[in-house]
Write a protein that binds this DNA or RNA. Structure first.
Length: 258
DNA sequence: GCGACAG
DNA sequence: ATCTTGTCGC
């Protein structure tokens, strides 16, 4: 059993980690948010990156989760796992991680290798209580995690330039007012993430610190991992894999029922 | 009260 | 997120 499998097992088995009531979940977020650390990540030490995602059934409670490990230099798939499970928490915006992390951790536990960095399809600090799924996973594992989301949950920002690599900051607060560059320079605003254009002329992605990386490092990594498509490669692979896996599980179940 | 709301 | 066919553009 790999090192990460043991840690994942302890996390999943501790009922303190998995409240069933949204009220308790919010309280847990408030307690754990203080443990998030934004710090430089040694990019030269990053050999492998894991992309994580979950695919849900429309009516059913069935779901599949995937973890795909890529070589950070070549972007080739090193290892991938997919597991089937069931929904254990409702989808509530802001409490997304309580729904998504149990199956994600199950998948991580089946990995032979221990990735150096993890990429979540969602936010880290760019969250109303600064504790999105990427921060939640990072604190539970105490490993580097980056958040890369496809739409905004919280915060305000202006639009980045249309060329690949251009970006604007995401600032805490409700999303009507565009952040003021003078206020940013004066350090008066809390920067919680970055709107990053990974493909020219295509809707940007929203990057934030999960845990044990800083925002520059997180954005550099996401851009490196998105040489061709909008969504970073590890997450693209995980998205495709868990979608296929869920359909295979459904097909197998349907076949055995007749 | 109103609007917003990751996947 | 999921359910879905064709269609516009490089």
């Amino acid at each position: 059993m790999s090192d990460i499998a043991e840690r994942v097992g302890r996390i999943l088995d501790d009922p303190e980690n998995w409240p069933s009531d949204p009220k308790e979940a919010v309280a847990l977020q408030r307690r754990m948010a203080g443990r998030v650390r934004a710090e430089p990540l040694d990019a030269s030490a990053v050999r492998t990156v894991a992309g994580l995602d979950v695919s849900y059934a429309k009516d059913d409670s069935a779901l599949s989760a995937a973890a795909v490990v890529l070589d950070a230099a070549t972007l080739e798939v090193v290892e991938s796992v997919a597991i089937a499970s069931e929904v254990s928490f409702p989808y509530i915006s802001g409490l997304f991680s309580f729904r998504e992390l149990p199956p994600v951790l199950e998948a991580l536990g089946r990995l032979e290798t221990t990735p150096d960095v993890y990429l979540c399809d969602g936010f880290g600090l760019a969250h109303p209580r600064r504790f999105g799924v990427a921060s939640h996973l990072g604190v539970l594992l105490d490993l580097p995690v980056v958040g890369s989301a496809k739409s905004v949950l919280y915060g305000r920002h202006s639009e980045p330039g249309r060329e690949r690599g251009s970006w604007t900051p995401m600032v805490a607060g409700r999303s009507e007012v565009v952040p003021d560059s003078a206020a940013l320079a004066a350090g008066g605003a809390e920067v919680i993430g970055r709107v990053l254009r990974t493909r020219a002329g295509v809707k940007p992605v929203y990057v934030s610190v999960g845990h044990r990386v800083d925002l520059d490092g997180a954005a550099d990594l996401v851009l490196r991992l998105s040489p061709k498509y909008r969504v970073p490669e590890p997450v693209r692979h995980a998205d495709r894999l868990c979608g296929e896996h869920r359909k295979e599980v459904l097909a197998a179940r349907t076949a055995s029922e007749e």
